[in-house]
Protein backbone atom coordinates (compact mmCIF):
# COMPACT_ATOMS: atom_id res chain seq x y z
CA UNK A 1 0.00 0.00 0.00
CA UNK A 2 1.14 3.55 -0.54
CA UNK A 3 -0.01 6.84 -1.99
CA UNK A 4 0.65 9.30 -4.76
CA UNK A 5 1.43 12.85 -3.64
CA UNK A 6 0.57 15.49 -6.28
CA UNK A 7 3.24 18.02 -5.35
CA UNK A 8 1.70 20.96 -7.25
CA UNK A 9 -1.91 20.43 -6.12
CA UNK A 10 -1.99 23.41 -3.69
CA UNK A 11 -0.75 25.74 -6.43
CA UNK A 12 -3.20 24.35 -8.98
CA UNK A 13 -6.13 24.87 -6.58
CA UNK A 14 -5.06 28.45 -5.78
CA UNK A 15 -4.61 29.25 -9.47
CA UNK A 16 -8.16 28.05 -10.11
CA UNK A 17 -9.48 30.23 -7.29
CA UNK A 18 -7.69 33.21 -8.89
CA UNK A 19 -9.28 32.34 -12.25
CA UNK A 20 -12.70 32.28 -10.54
CA UNK A 21 -11.92 35.72 -9.10
CA UNK A 22 -10.83 37.14 -12.45
CA UNK A 23 -14.06 35.85 -14.02
CA UNK A 24 -16.21 36.96 -11.08
CA UNK A 25 -17.45 33.37 -10.52
CA UNK A 26 -18.85 32.36 -7.09
CA UNK A 27 -17.70 35.63 -5.49
CA UNK A 28 -19.72 35.86 -2.28
CA UNK A 29 -18.52 38.97 -0.47
CA UNK A 30 -17.69 42.61 -1.24
CA UNK A 31 -15.15 44.37 0.96
CA UNK A 32 -15.61 48.13 1.07
CA UNK A 33 -12.81 50.45 2.08
CA UNK A 34 -13.33 54.19 1.93
CA UNK A 35 -15.44 54.02 -1.22
CA UNK A 36 -13.39 51.34 -2.98
CA UNK A 37 -14.91 47.85 -3.45
CA UNK A 38 -13.14 44.50 -3.64
CA UNK A 39 -14.99 41.27 -4.54
CA UNK A 40 -13.69 38.01 -3.12
CA UNK A 41 -14.52 34.49 -1.91
CA UNK A 42 -15.24 34.30 1.80
CA UNK A 43 -13.45 30.93 1.98
CA UNK A 44 -10.19 32.42 0.67
CA UNK A 45 -10.41 35.43 3.00
CA UNK A 46 -11.08 33.18 5.99
CA UNK A 47 -8.23 30.84 5.05
CA UNK A 48 -5.73 33.73 4.88
CA UNK A 49 -6.80 36.34 7.43
CA UNK A 50 -7.43 36.06 11.16
CA UNK A 51 -9.75 39.05 11.03
CA UNK A 52 -11.97 37.51 8.34
CA UNK A 53 -11.84 34.18 10.16
CA UNK A 54 -13.28 35.90 13.26
CA UNK A 55 -15.94 37.69 11.21
CA UNK A 56 -17.19 34.73 9.17
CA UNK A 57 -17.13 32.21 11.99
CA UNK A 58 -19.35 34.50 14.06
CA UNK A 59 -22.91 33.12 13.61
CA UNK A 60 -24.26 36.66 13.55
CA UNK A 61 -21.96 37.74 10.69
CA UNK A 62 -21.24 34.57 8.71
CA UNK A 63 -23.79 35.40 5.99
CA UNK A 64 -22.73 38.99 5.40
CA UNK A 65 -22.20 39.67 1.70
CA UNK A 66 -20.79 43.17 2.19
CA UNK A 67 -18.28 44.29 4.81
CA UNK A 68 -16.97 47.79 5.38
CA UNK A 69 -13.50 47.90 6.86
CA UNK A 70 -12.17 50.70 9.03
CA UNK A 71 -11.71 53.72 6.72
CA UNK A 72 -8.16 54.13 8.04
CA UNK A 73 -7.24 50.89 6.22
CA UNK A 74 -5.31 51.69 3.05
CA UNK A 75 -7.03 50.34 -0.10
CA UNK A 76 -3.68 49.94 -1.91
CA UNK A 77 -2.35 47.83 0.95
CA UNK A 78 -5.52 45.76 0.97
CA UNK A 79 -5.30 45.21 -2.80
CA UNK A 80 -1.72 43.92 -2.45
CA UNK A 81 -2.76 41.53 0.32
CA UNK A 82 -5.83 40.31 -1.59
CA UNK A 83 -3.61 39.50 -4.56
CA UNK A 84 -1.23 37.72 -2.18
CA UNK A 85 -4.08 35.59 -0.85
CA UNK A 86 -4.91 34.42 -4.39
CA UNK A 87 -1.37 34.09 -5.79
CA UNK A 88 1.07 33.56 -2.87
CA UNK A 89 3.04 36.50 -4.32
CA UNK A 90 3.43 39.61 -2.14
CA UNK A 91 4.20 42.76 -4.13
CA UNK A 92 6.76 44.84 -2.21
CA UNK A 93 7.23 48.42 -3.42
CA UNK A 94 9.39 50.64 -1.21
CA UNK A 95 6.61 53.22 -1.20
CA UNK A 96 3.97 50.71 -0.05
CA UNK A 97 5.73 48.19 2.16
CA UNK A 98 4.87 50.03 5.39
CA UNK A 99 1.24 50.36 4.33
CA UNK A 100 1.21 46.67 3.38
CA UNK A 101 2.65 45.72 6.76
CA UNK A 102 0.12 47.82 8.67
CA UNK A 103 -2.78 46.44 6.62
CA UNK A 104 -1.52 42.89 7.18
CA UNK A 105 -1.47 43.61 10.89
CA UNK A 106 -5.06 44.89 10.76
CA UNK A 107 -6.10 41.74 8.84
CA UNK A 108 -4.24 39.59 11.39
CA UNK A 109 -1.86 38.09 8.82
CA UNK A 110 1.09 37.84 11.21
CA UNK A 111 3.46 35.89 8.93
CA UNK A 112 3.16 38.60 6.28
CA UNK A 113 3.78 41.26 8.94
CA UNK A 114 6.97 39.45 10.00
CA UNK A 115 8.14 39.17 6.40
CA UNK A 116 7.50 42.86 5.74
CA UNK A 117 9.32 43.78 8.96
CA UNK A 118 12.36 41.72 7.91
CA UNK A 119 12.25 43.28 4.43
CA UNK A 120 12.16 46.82 5.90
CA UNK A 121 15.03 46.01 8.26
CA UNK A 122 17.10 44.59 5.41
CA UNK A 123 16.47 47.69 3.32
CA UNK A 124 17.51 49.93 6.22
CA UNK A 125 20.73 47.97 6.62
CA UNK A 126 21.63 47.93 2.92
Amino acid sequence: DGCIQFTRHAGDVLLNFNRLRSRNILMDVTIQIDGQRFCAHRAVLVACSGLFYSIFTDPLKSNLSAISLDPTVDPDGFAILLDFMYTSTLTLKDSLVLVTMNTASYLQMEHVVDTCRRFIKSREQS
Partner: peptide, 21 residues
Amino acid sequence: YEGVNTIKEMGRSIHEIPRQE
Protein backbone atom coordinates in the same frame (compact mmCIF):
# COMPACT_ATOMS: atom_id res chain seq x y z
CA TYR B 1 2.22 11.22 3.59
CA GLU B 2 5.99 11.41 3.62
CA GLY B 3 7.93 8.13 3.53
CA VAL B 4 5.67 5.09 3.39
CA ASN B 5 5.62 4.12 -0.32
CA THR B 6 4.90 7.66 -1.44
CA ILE B 7 5.11 8.29 -5.15
CA LYS B 8 5.54 11.99 -5.99
CA GLU B 9 3.54 13.13 -9.01
CA MET B 10 4.99 16.43 -10.29
CA GLY B 11 2.37 16.96 -12.97
CA ARG B 12 -0.89 18.91 -12.84
CA SER B 13 -3.39 17.49 -10.34
CA ILE B 14 -6.70 19.05 -11.39
CA HIS B 15 -8.32 20.75 -14.40
CA GLU B 16 -7.30 24.37 -15.14
CA ILE B 17 -10.16 26.86 -15.16
CA PRO B 18 -9.78 28.87 -18.38
CA ARG B 19 -9.21 32.66 -18.24
CA GLN B 20 -12.52 33.06 -20.04
CA GLU B 21 -15.06 30.66 -21.54
